[in-house]
Deep mutational scan, measured.
Amino acid sequence: SEFQINEQVLASWSDSRFYPAKVTAVNKDGTYTVKFYDGVVQTVKHIHVKA
């Protein structure tokens, strides 16, 4: 599913667990740039983002 900029989502971290994050960019290659609550910004594949 498509997510929008500033949408609150759950994004997987390197430990494969999902954490609350905010979408900061929707990228043309189908990835999302997300910002976790601790301030870390990461680009993740769409399969690693869920509502």
Rank of each mutant, 00 (worst) to 15 (best):
Y37G: 08
P20G: 04
Q4T: 10
S16T: 11
V44K: 04
V23L: 07
T31M: 02
N6M: 07
H48R: 09
V41N: 06
G39T: 02
F36Q: 01
T43G: 02
G30W: 05
V49T: 06
V23I: 15
A21C: 07
Q4E: 08
S1C: 14
E7C: 06
T24A: 04
Y32I: 11
Q42W: 12
T24N: 05
R17L: 13
E2W: 09
S16H: 13
V44N: 01
T33G: 01
K50C: 12
Q8K: 10
K22D: 05
T31Y: 05
Y37S: 12
F3K: 01
V23K: 00
T24E: 10
D38M: 07
V41M: 07
S1I: 13
Q4D: 07
L10E: 06
V40C: 14
Y32R: 00
K35V: 12
A25L: 06
F36H: 00
K28F: 10
H46Q: 09
K50N: 07
A51E: 09
A11V: 13
Y19S: 06
Y19H: 08
F36I: 02
K45Q: 12
T43E: 07
P20A: 07
P20S: 03
V26I: 13
D29N: 08
Q8A: 12
E2A: 14
K45Y: 11
S1Q: 12
G39A: 04
F36Y: 05
A11L: 05
A11K: 01
Y37K: 07
P20T: 06
A51F: 08
K50G: 06
A25M: 08
I47F: 13
D15K: 02
G30E: 03
D38C: 15
T31E: 02
S12K: 15
A11W: 03
V23W: 00
S14T: 13
S16Y: 08
D29P: 01
N27S: 04
R17T: 13
T43Y: 04
F18K: 01
T43N: 11
Q4S: 11
E7I: 12
V9M: 02
V40E: 10
V49W: 01
K35S: 08
V41K: 05
